[in-house]
Amino acid sequence: MKMSVRLAGLEFASPVLAASGTWEFGLRFADVSNQLGGIVTKGITLEPRAGNPPPRIAECPGGIINSVGLENPGLATFVGHFLPRIGRLRCRVIVNVAGSRPGEYAELVERLAHPRVDAFELNVSCPNVREGGTAFGASPAAVERITRLCRRRTKKPLIVKLTANFVDPAETARAAEAGGADAVTVLNTLFGLALGPEGRPFLGGRTGGVSGPCLKPFALYCVDRVAPAIGIPVVACGGVMNGADAADFLSAGARLVQVGSASLADPQAPGRVARELATFCRARRLRDWDDLVGRTRREN
């Protein structure tokens, strides 16, 4: 069967992407990036961000809790240093952008009008920053406003990365759609707290975001909830470790699926997930992605 899939007018060679924040800029394992439909860069802000003090990662059963806090080199270094090299990858390039004010998102997408940037992922859901982040993502009005501001400044596809931290992602997904989004990513990490032996917060950023396979049932629930609520595609993200996990998310209604925390355990994971998904579909003699996408809610 044909492995490629379309989203917002773009063809992706595979439905599997590397998720933002767990793949840096796709260059350290460029050979793996090239086995994927695309990569989503680490979140970029207008100015460089130092991120949170260490420790920045803790483990929980079946997952991790991170508080990196959007450390990134900032727009100028990203464009001048990383983008030319990212441009040589043979996969779709989605740039994740984050702002502490709504106008910053619009400025970022406008200044990233580079031919090798295929689409944007609007990060309105980072749990580890004081301004913006999940505060925007918890407000349907803010999500709609940010999406609309960006829509006016770029023709490239906009994918809004949603949170489920104290908000119904179906509501914010509808707000993103109303603001002109082309797709939504479901979902970013969930708030988490890791304690040290003395009962004090372990992470340098005090709290963090939970990801990994422990998040998969909830992420799958969210995809199943969001997909029928909107008319634009869903990009799934949450605990995908193998091809069967990816197939689950497509069955639940996602068009694309991201691999995140699994890349920390094995940098070959995104490529392996893409291969396993292809094998899964061939073994079931599926003709098309449409045979898989949305099976969860189909009559028979």
């Binding site: 767990t22 840096e24 394992f29 680490k42 920045r56 991170n66 990196v68 890349s263 355990a265």
Partner: peptide
């Protein structure tokens, strides 16, 4: 975190 430079942890 990753040991390979991709996670910034």
């Amino acid at each position: 975190g990753c040991g390979t430079g991709i996670c910034y942890c």
